[in-house]
Simulated assay, not measured.
Amino acid sequence: MSGEKKLYKYKTLKSVAVRLRDDLNDHHFVLLYAYNGTGKTRLSMEFKDIVKKRKKNPLTDTLYYNAYTEDLFHWNNDLDNDSERHLIINQKSRFFEGFRELALDERIFGFLERYADFNFTINYVDWNIAFKKQIKNHKFRPDSEEPEYVIQENIKVSRGEENIFIWCIFLAITELAIDGDESYGWVKHIYIDDPISSLDDNNAIAVASDLAQLLKRGKDKLKVVISSHHALFFNVMYNELRNIAHKSHFLHKNGSDGYILRATDDTPFFHHVALLSDLWKASETGKVNTYHFNMLRSVLEKTSTFFGYDEFSKCIYGIEDEVLFSRALNLLSHGKYSIYQPVEMNLDNKELFTRILKAFLDRHSFQLPEIFA
Rank of each mutant, 00 (worst) to 15 (best):
Y317W: 10
F307H: 14
H334S: 15
S93K: 09
D321S: 01
L214I: 13
K133S: 08
H229M: 05
A231K: 09
L251Y: 05
K139D: 12
H28Y: 12
S209I: 14
Y337S: 07
N25P: 00
Y33T: 11
C315S: 14
K216M: 10
G218E: 03
R363W: 01
L352V: 06
L368S: 13
E97D: 10
H229S: 12
R100L: 03
F307R: 12
D193V: 07
L20N: 00
S158W: 10
N239E: 09
V224N: 02
F73V: 08
F269G: 01
A274V: 08
E70V: 11
K9A: 03
V343N: 07
V150T: 09
Y115W: 03
E113F: 11
I192D: 02
I226M: 04
N128F: 13
A208G: 05
D82P: 03
M45Q: 15
D193W: 07
M45R: 14
T62M: 01
E84T: 12
T60S: 14
L352D: 01
T267G: 10
F109R: 09
S93H: 12
F366E: 13
N66C: 04
I50L: 15
I319V: 15
A116C: 06
S256M: 12
G180S: 11
F140Y: 11
K221F: 12
H246C: 05
E182P: 00
G160S: 12
V236I: 13
K136I: 09
S44D: 02
L352W: 02
V187C: 07
V288H: 07
L332Y: 08
L276V: 10
L20E: 03
L7M: 09
Y191M: 08
K133A: 04
M295F: 04
P142E: 12
K53W: 06
V207R: 02
I356T: 04
G218I: 01
K133D: 10
V187Y: 09
K336L: 12
S326W: 00
V16K: 06
Y33H: 06
T12Q: 11
N154D: 14
D194H: 06
I164A: 13
T285P: 00
D105Y: 05
L222Q: 05
Y33D: 09
T62I: 06
S277E: 13
K53D: 11
R242T: 05
R114F: 11
A359W: 01
S283C: 12
L214D: 04
K14V: 07
C168E: 02
D181C: 02
L211R: 01
K40G: 05
L43E: 03
A274T: 09
I169F: 09
K133C: 06
K253W: 03
L211S: 11
V207A: 09
L279R: 06
I205G: 02
D310G: 10
I108R: 01
N119P: 03
F270P: 00
S365I: 14
I89F: 08
I205E: 01
R297G: 00
L331G: 02
E322G: 04
K52S: 13
N81R: 15
R107S: 03
S209M: 15
E4V: 08
D71P: 01
I319A: 10
N66L: 11
F293T: 01
G185W: 10
E182R: 05
D61T: 10
E370G: 08
I316R: 09
H364P: 11
D105E: 15
I169N: 06
M1C: 04
D71C: 12
L357F: 08
R297H: 07
R262P: 01
S93G: 08
A17Y: 06
E84G: 11
M237Q: 08
E148D: 14
